[in-house]
Nucleic acid binder design. Structure first.
Lengths: 204, 204
DNA sequence: TCGATACGCAACCGTCCCGTTTCGAAATGC
DNA sequence: GCATTTCGAAACGGGACGGTTGCGTATCGA
């Protein structure tokens, strides 16, 4: 964001201050459009301005670059992670997967995720920001759950945590991607994934 | 594809026949552009024609619709699946994952996959075709491996096969998506995923 | 009150693309 | 030879968009 800092000693520039409302309207417009399935490359400043009820100049005054704008918009997308009750690792993992599943039903989240996943070749900065804002916090939370489980003995102490995280998240994401609608998946998908994972595939 | 059938009894139309070379050049151009990261919506007929060294009319004569063209291009993308040696389920699964990993290094395959995954909302027919051409054959092969393992006793007979498939594929795909380059992943990723999966997470 | 800056709005020109048409040349069947 | 069809190339009118500029207004500090 390119708003002026309010650091002490920094002189506030003369003239009319920038409208925080315009800031928010622009960010919201970007997120809305992305949520409607518009790709980054197809995002037009004009469309954003129109949607935000804002002049194009107001956008160009703040961002010189479309990608900068999208990066800021992505950063504004907060990732509310539920507190894990911690009654058991199994319950925490199931909750974790169900949050992912539920979020994938939100068009905005869904499309942001699509963009982050598919355009990381063309927009590395964007993908990086998304990773930092949305992915890493979740990974950290999941990692904590697993470590706690290793301490309580619910999980083997010698598992490869990074591999386990990839397996857990990947299973849900891949399932969601394999069907048209999240509704097409069994109600208890999260439970089944976690139980299958805990038990392992190997014969007795 | 809109080439003329060669069914017996079908009269061959008069005039100059369509160039098979042009057909192939157009399909290749589409695949090339997609492989370079161009999204479906940004694919322009002009760019395709230029790349293919073909007049726009030659394209419009064959496809009335950009999506039809992309669907045909996708269908032309064959999915060579290796024969599974079948010495053990573990080895087959590792091979399966390593094929996925290796293919994700091919820009063309990678981008086609990106498109199929992220634009299934906007282009359902395209996603469906991709699923049919690329996804289902792999799923069938993987399913066969698991069933064989259940028969030999290498795998529990009571596993949920669909869940297991989601877990196996998802783990690799999700890992690949989590890093910039496939090179950033450990060499033995496939082995580690499979072993972790076979063993399960649960404490002793 | 006055200067400075931001605001929404409209217009501008250049670029890209679309889908169609026209052109002369080439390739086939009759 | 002739009709027919396709070929690549070029051009068309129309539309979308980019990035810039100017306009009149609104909102701040001095």
């Amino acid at each position: 964001m390119m708003t002026y800092g309010t650091v002490e000693g920094t002189a506030r520039p003369a003239g009319r201050p920038r409208s925080a409302k315009a800031d928010q309207a622009i960010i919201d417009a970007v997120l809305d459009l992305i949520g409607e399935g518009v790709g980054v490359s197809e995002l037009s400043i004009e469309a954003i301005a129109t949607r935000a009820g804002v002049g194009k100049t107001t956008i160009y005054r703040r961002w010189s670059n479309k990608e900068d704008l999208v990066v800021d918009a992505l950063a504004a997308l907060k990732a509310p992670l539920p507190a894990f009750p911690g009654t058991s690792v199994r319950d925490d993992l199931i909750l974790y997967l169900n949050v992912i599943r539920q979020e994938s039903g939100n068009p905005r989240t869904r499309c942001v995720m699509n963009i982050a996943m598919s355009e990381q070749d063309r927009h590395p900065r964007l993908a990086e920001r998304f990773h930092e804002v949305a992915v890493e916090p979740r990974r950290a939370a999941l990692r904590a759950v697993l470590h706690r489980g290793m301490e309580t003995g619910e999980i083997r102490r010698d598992i490869d945590v990074e591999i386990a995280m990839a397996v857990i998240g990947g299973a849900m994401v891949w399932s969601l991607k394999s069907v048209r609608e999240a509704k097409d998946l069994p109600e208890d998908l999260a439970e089944r994934i976690v139980d299958e994972l805990m038990a392992g595939l190997a014969g007795r």
